[in-house]
Design a protein around this nucleic acid. Structure first.
Length: 432
RNA sequence: GGAGACGUGGCCGAGUGGUCGAAGGCGCACGCCUGGAAAGUGUGUAGGCGGGAGACCGUCUCGUGGGUUCGAAUCCCACCGUCUCCGCCA
């Protein structure tokens, strides 16, 4: 959420930044509402002050047994009360209206974010590895060694489309990947391992901006919980409502959780295979930082995700999302795209965003500066480290051999009983 | 699920209708004291919103939201949360 004061002070900058996201002339609307709101607050508080003053005098009148004064004052307060009620209702209404408006306006892009309208205008800034030469490269669900372990029919019988059931060696590699990622983040990147709920209340979803605007993207239980679409929700909201010490920062967290997404609006996209599912696993990273350190942290977090792909020998590139393709809460986003030989394309496997104080404001997450001074909002960052299902796809496709067997990255073998291969018939093997 | 207790400032804790944003303590900050420190001692020490050039003023906040009352931390209702006992259970 945006700071009304900074919009007041700098409406041009605000409009200019939002324009890059295709939103025009927003400040005028906000400021006129704000002005109306402030005068309503002044009205209401003036009336309240009058009422309070009279009420305090009643106390004195009572204690000096001045019955006459008591009666007069009581009637005065009584009449003021009606005035206060209507005026403060109006003030509250306008305040709510302003909040509602501010809640639906996306974050401002940083000045170095490329301007563009959609993913075609994202800018590649880094490339690692060389896409392997594979004759007749197949997609993951077509590879002989993967097929027995990837059962879409049974999953759809149980749950419908966009679900998969993994079995045997593929299920084990999937599990190995998540363990591997967590271990690296904990032992090499100094992130704190966290196990979080996947069912959350409204407030948490507001904090990380899934609500109020994107309710249709997530699932809600009959008793009002939301299934998290990412553990960004739970990890980031761990600091909601808190006044931290500056020395607590940065807080670096990671979690491996299930994620649930309705994929409303993506009908027809990525319908085959397990690239886009209603339910998937993801290892997430979240950092809570001092405002001066969030940009540095953005680089650090991106490197944490890069390290995973590099250790798994998966070719990838990094793109900076353009203004039109960035998510609602982000000021700048690095997408890591992994090479998928079956599609002959780079596909998103991680998205690392710096949100500034946008989420902190919604969550009321602040810290007390060490050298005194007022509470300040923290900065938040989140990134995938990385999507487990998609990583499985990348491992299978990049490791596929012409005979349908799959070579697995050495980094995984400690998690696979030293195996480094899946045979063309779908069994884990140890080959020297 | 049944029964009960409770929710006050950074922390502990007093306050059961009147000037209470709230005693006292701890912690913290700054001073005094000291050769230096400890001890002692003095002062200060929440946040949001609004007004004001500023000093400062107003308003709201004692889990959250409503209500009663001239007046609520204190009474009533709902919700959220914590704890204890019983039951059930991975």
């Amino acid at each position: 959420m945006h700071d009304i004061k900074s919009i007041r002070e700098n409406p041009q900058d605000f409009d200019q930044a939002l324009q890059l996201r295709g939103i025009y002339g927003m400040s005028a609307k906000i400021l006129s509402l704000d002005e109306e709101r402030r005068s309503a607050i002044l009205d209401a508080e003036t009336a309240t002050a009058d009422q309070n003053k009279a009420a305090r005098e009643i106390g004195k009148a009572k204690s000096s047994n001045d019955e006459n004064a008591f009666k007069i004052l009581r009637d005065l307060v009584s009449s003021k009360k009606k005035e206060v009620a209507s005026k403060s209702a109006r003030a509250k209404e306008l305040d709510q209206e302003l909040t509602n408006l501010l809640m639906t306006i996306p974050n401002l892009p940083l000045s170095d974010v490329p301007v563009g309208k959609d993913e075609l205008e994202n800018v590649e800034i880094f490339k690692w590895g060389t896409p392997p030469e594979i004759k007749n490269a197949k997609e993951h669900f077509e590879i002989a060694g993967a097929k027995p372990g990837m059962d879409f029919e049974t999953a759809s019988k149980l749950s419908g489309s966009r679900f998969v059931l993994l079995r045997g060696s593929i299920a084990r590699v999937h599990r190995a990947l998540s363990q591997f990622m967590l271990d690296i983040h904990v032992t090499e990147h100094d992130l704190t391992e966290t196990m979080t709920p996947v069912l959350v209340r409204d407030e948490a979803m507001y904090g990380t901006n899934q609500l109020p605007k994107f309710a249709e993207d997530s699932y809600k239980t009959t008793n009002g919980w939301w299934l998290i679409p990412t553990s960004e929700v739970t990890l980031t909201n761990t600091v909601s409502g808190r006044n931290l010490s500056e020395s607590d920062l940065p807080i670096r967290l990671t979690a491996h959780t299930l994620c649930f997404r309705s994929e409303a609006g993506s009908a027809g996209k990525d319908t085959s295979g397990m690239l886009r599912q209603h339910q998937f696993e993801k290892v997430e990273m979240v950092s809570i930082t001092h405002p001066d350190q969030s940009l540095e942290e953005h680089t650090r977090m991106t490197k944490c995700a890069q390290a995973i792909l590099e250790k798994l020998c998966l070719p990838y590139r990094i793109v900076v999302l353009c203004t039109g393709d960035m998510g609602f809460g982000a000021r700048k986003t690095h997408d890591l795209e992994v090479w998928l030989p079956g599609q002959k394309k780079y596909r998103e496997i991680s998205s690392v965003s710096v949100c500034g104080d946008f989420q902190a404001r919604r969550m009321l997450a602040r810290f007390k500066p060490t050298n005194g001074g007022k509470l300040k909002f923290v900065h938040t960052l989140n990134g995938s480290g990385v999507a487990v299902g998609r990583c499985l796809i990348a491992v299978l496709e990049n490791g596929q051999n012409e005979d349908g067997s799959i070579s697995l990255p050495a980094a995984l073998s400690p998690y696979l009983g030293d195996c480094n291969r899946i045979s063309s018939t779908g069994y884990l093997e140890k080959k020297v």
